[in-house]
Design a protein around this nucleic acid. Structure first.
Length: 938
RNA sequence: GCUCAAGUGGCGGAAUUGGUAGACGCGCUGGAUUCAAAAUCCAGUUCUUUCGGGAGUGUGGGUUCGAUUCCCACCUUGAGUACCA
């Protein structure tokens, strides 16, 4: 009987599906464990071997936890809204829903053949109306909330209205828009309904505001900051410009501090936490107000160095700063206008690329120093960003290199306020070594004390206060796209209203064109049949829109991250039509215990979802304000591209060794044309593209044509994609699973090399032979040998440690060693081979399930308990214990057979004592590692 | 520039708390089997050597009886971020 992996794998995949082996119940006597994967976007290209890496790891862990007696939730779904499907629809007219459904089918087939233990009864799709109904519902909850600084959480908007009614807004301490006018209770009552709505909008957690956005004309939509790479769109590489538009925004800035603090409570990788910390960008300092001479306005700045306030020799405003026009004197107007025009012309990209050139202009205006009352000139310069802080800085050239360079360039004085520091060459920015001088009441103080004192003095004269600034901006939530969640919003007199929950979901309408309308409205403006409102809160679904009586609906859709921000909670109760999830479900599953996914979502999905979770926590829907206890980032599997070299200007190809000094152009060749010795199959390559048909190929002396190999990201355009379908067909899913783990540490980037898979494949064949001989099963009830018991328990220990440390690569080696040893020992005992199978079943479930079944078990191996480790089997049965000492010397200690671990330790200790006395040293500690040599630590 | 991660054979990578560096796999070399090939099995495989050894985990120092592991400085690569006041 041979190892027929294709037959075995199909058989057990069918069995698991039919018996719902991995269905998780929301009630159990067992402890719960929730293992989550980042759900995939179902792209048209299907899966390549890099995609399942994280899923294999999480599957091993989920299966391990089941063996340990946990009730495991291990769901999977699809993040199925997104731009590629829409772009495809624009090009072909094919409805995104259709292509998405097809892609999902392919993904499902590909995932199924790898043998994952997903509970598919809990599948979610973000583009499914039954799912995005709840995305819309959360949006409404956010709209109906504001952030109270006093209670430090989201509160219901009705509470805020109550406060406005009774005492106005002067005592309201909220995270809200800047510059809201204060009003009394009487004022509030006198306001029109529209004015009241406008004011409330400035407090809501999701709000409509005119914001400067990243507009991508080619894609016809706005993009979030994390969708832009090097000034062009991540998708397609189109140019992006800044543009003012009315957009929905999420007030994530309200949660900046909690998002930062929460990082300390979760077990995520340090590098990922660090990215989030940088993205949130907290800086502690002071807000300082400078009076403008001859104007009633003031200039507010934010600074992290209030201790250097006496070093201020000029102010710098961003060119876009609103005061610039007002304060510029007539003499300076021409120069300032010219400068503003010049900077406006420069794209964001140019500005980023060229940070060395110092530019700026003097406005002619002066502010007054709050303490010395000296006049300070006000400049504008594009090194000050309009979007950060207040868009204005107090420039301290002696303490900040940029201010220093600016001052040098424009011959502005550079007063020195540091004791004993030479600033003739560069600014001095070392806070630790700072001693302030030349600064009135701050003289002689260090950075910390001077900062405290400066803030105290500023507060005293009403010119400033302590302030914490965050780099984190509110997130723009509108997209001018078709293939996304519609907003549950309609407008009355231009003011947004929420559609009643009873009418949800507001489903996507059919449109003829997926491009924006001719008047520039988003694609949903093309709909002629859709949901519409005849009067407030009365929605008619899917009828022809009657333009006379209708209140218009929001035509934007939500961004990609909307659907992925609560999916992990929806998995707990995915088919619930009445609630996003039941109380029972969330109380049982609580939160994700282990989350595995890529680190590319560090400042996107992984930040937004934490924000929504904190909001859901504030509203009492969930029990934890962090949803994922532990997160692991799997590294990417890279492709090994193959390059052929074409002589510049000729249709002639040179083998790798012949290039020398000839001018050649490297061209990607499909990796399927290249064998493991890097030789190109010239015929296949010629037939690949018509232009290569008649090309000339110059081979090496031995007649082969060699390609150059290079490791790159796996991608269709680089022709280095390896399809898991082919691997499964040739070697089986178990081989694929083992090999992906064997490639290297989970979190590391590593290249794929199909040639190496023979190693794990032959391991599986050996494993099969260990159990099955020519006449069927070889396993019997024989007493296991000491050596076999040792092999087994060594393996149990190692594999358990490996899984708990997520070092899946080394357990594959451990299995190989175990099978080799047991084969050499001619082990046939079921007391060894049964537990071994359970260990392997997490990694290679199909073969394990088959052998388990042949051993006479009717239940799936996934229900078997994890074997217990017994250290007593690991005690050396050999007589000799080599002792490493002093690097060079070795002692051999003779000990009786079958000594206990403690006795060995005592014996070694005694021996070591005499030896070390001879050496003139005394030992501190003796370590006995079962199964290994004895170590002495001095 | 800043932050983070990582540098070990021809390659992917092991090495637990500082204790025999290179497990395991690929590749390569030799052998067995075969008419032959594939497959399988066995042996070898860090470098160097006068066959006694010697050197060796990016480089240079340090701590230690002992360092791939800890400390300091530097170099290289990768990732993220970028005029953040």
């Amino acid at each position: 009987m041979n190892y027929n992996f294709n037959e075995i794998e199909a058989k057990w995949q069918k069995f698991w599906a039919e018996n719902k082996t991995f269905k998780a119940e929301n009630k159990s006597d067992k402890p719960k464990y929730y293992v989550l994967d980042m759900f995939p976007y179902p792209s048209g290209a299907g899966l390549h071997v890099g995609h399942p890496l994280g899923y294999i790891a999480s599957d091993i862990y989920a299966r391990y936890k089941r063996h340990q007696g946990f009730n495991v939730l291990h769901p999977q779904g699809y993040d199925s809204f997104g731009l590629p499907a829409e772009q495809y629809a624009i090009q072909t007219g094919q409805h995104p829903a259709i292509t998405t459904a097809e892609n999902i089918k392919t993904y499902r087939r590909q995932l199924d053949q790898i043998g994952f233990s997903f509970d598919w009864s809990r599948e979610v799709r973000t583009s499914d109306p039954n799912y995005y109904k709840w995305t819309q519902w959360i949006f409404i909850q956010l709209f109906n909330s504001w952030y109270s600084i006093d209670s430090d959480k989201a509160e219901d908007i009705s509470e805020l209205i109550k406060i406005f009614n009774s005492e106005g807004n002067s005592k309201v301490n909220a995270v809200c828009d800047e510059g809201i006018e204060s009003f009394s209770a009487e004022d509030w009552e006198s306001f029109s309904s529209k004015k009241q709505q406008q004011i409330l909008l400035q407090y809501r957690l999701t709000y409509l505001a005119e914001t400067e956005v990243n507009w991508c004309p080619a894609l016809g939509t706005v993009l979030a900051n994390d969708e832009i790479v090097n000034g062009v769109s991540e998708r397609g590489g189109h140019p992006v410009i800044r543009k003012k538009m009315t957009q929905w925004s999420m007030r994530i800035s309200a949660y900046a501090e909690r998002l930062l603090q929460g990082l300390d409570t979760i077990d995520w990788t340090d590098s990922l936490k660090e990215s989030q910390r940088n993205w949130i960008g907290k800086s502690v300092g002071a807000a300082v107000t400078f009076k403008l001479e001859g104007h009633k306005e003031v200039v507010d700045v934010f600074t992290t160095r209030p201790d250097t306030i006496f070093g201020v020799s000029f102010m710098t405003l961003a060119p876009e700063h609103e005061l610039v026009q007002k304060i510029t004197t007539n003499e300076q107007k021409a120069e300032v206008d010219a400068y503003i025009l010049a900077t406006a012309k420069r794209s964001e990209r140019d500005r980023m690329a060229d940070v060395k050139t110092i530019t700026g202009a003097f406005t002619g205006a002066y502010v007054e120093h709050p303490f010395t009352k000296e006049p300070i000139p006000v400049w504008i310069g594009d090194y000050v960003l309009a979007g950060y802080g207040t868009g204005a800085v107090m420039s301290v050239p002696c303490g900040d290199q940029r201010d220093y360079d600016f001052a040098k360039h424009f011959n502005i004085p550079i007063p020195n306020i540091f004791d004993g520091i030479d600033i003739s060459e560069e600014a001095f920015a070392d806070k630790e070594k700072t001693i302030i001088g030349n600064s009135d009441f701050l003289n002689g103080l260090n950075y910390k004390k001077a900062t405290k004192r400066a803030i105290f003095e500023l507060e005293k004269i009403g010119h400033g206060k302590e302030k914490i600034n965050y780099r984190l901006r509110d997130a723009v939530f509108s997209r001018q796209r078709y293939w996304g969640e519609p907003f549950p919003v309609y407008y009355v007199n231009g003011m947004p209203q929420m559609i009643n929950k009873a009418h949800l979901p507001i489903t996507l309408p059919e449109v003829e064109k997926y491009l924006p309308t001719e008047t520039g409205e988003p694609p949903l403006g093309n709909a002629t049949v859709w949901a519409w409102c005849t009067e407030t809160n009365s929605v008619v679904n899917n009828e022809k829109i009657d333009n006379k009586t209708v209140f218009p609906l929001e035509l934007n859709t939500m961004p990609g991250w909307a659907g992925s921000s609560q999916y992990f909670n929806r998995y707990m109760d995915p088919n619930n039509d009445n609630e996003i999830f039941s109380k029972e479900a969330i109380n049982y599953w609580q939160q994700v215990d282990l989350y595995i996914g890529g680190s590319e979502h560090a400042t996107g999905h992984l930040l937004y979802s934490r924000f929504w979770q904190k909001f859901m926590f504030d509203k009492g829907y969930v029990n934890h304000d962090e949803y994922a206890k532990k997160l692991i980032n799997q590294g990417m599997i890279l492709g090994t591209s193959a390059f052929v070299f074409r002589v510049e200007g000729e249709n002639k190809f040179l083998s790798k060794g012949l290039i020398d000094n000839i001018n050649v152009q490297p061209i990607h060749a499909d990796v399927s044309f290249v064998n493991s010795s890097d030789e190109l199959d010239i015929e296949s390559f010629k037939n690949w593209r018509p232009e290569f048909k008649d090309a000339e190929f110059i081979t090496e002396e031995d007649g082969t044509f060699k390609v150059k190999r290079d490791v790159e990201k796996m991608s269709k355009s680089k022709f280095n994609v390896v399809n898991p379908d082919d691997i499964v067909a040739d070697y089986g899913a178990d081989s694929l699973r083992l090999y992906e783990m064997f490639l290297g540490p989970l979190e590391q980037y590593k290249p794929w090399n199909t040639a190496g898979i023979t190693g794990v494949h032959s391991f599986l064949k050996k494993l099969w032979k260990l159990y099955v001989g020519e006449n069927g099963l070889k396993v019997n009830d024989a007493e296991p040998s000491k050596d076999s018991l040792k092999t087994l328990h060594k393996t149990i220990k190692k594999v358990q440690e490996d899984i708990e440390n997520f070092s899946f690569n080394t357990s594959v080696s451990t299995f190989m060693i175990a099978v080799n040893e047991l084969t050499a020992q001619k082990c046939t005992s079921k007391h060894i081979l049964e537990p071994l199978l359970i260990l392997i079943s997490s990694y290679a479930p199909h073969i394990a399930e088959e052998l388990w079944n042949q051993l006479g078990h009717n239940e799936s191996i996934s229900t078997a308990p994890f074997p217990e480790f017994d250290a007593s089997h690991l005690v050396e049965s050999s007589k000799n214990y080599p002792i490493s000492f002093n690097g060079k010397m070795r002692f051999t200690l003779e000990l009786p057979l079958d000594m206990s671990k403690d006795d060995i330790e005592k014996a070694v200790m005694a021996h070591e004592k005499t030896q070390s006395q001879l050496q003139g040293r005394s030992p501190k500690k003796v370590i006995v590692v079962p199964g290994k040599i004895v170590n002495i630590v001095g």
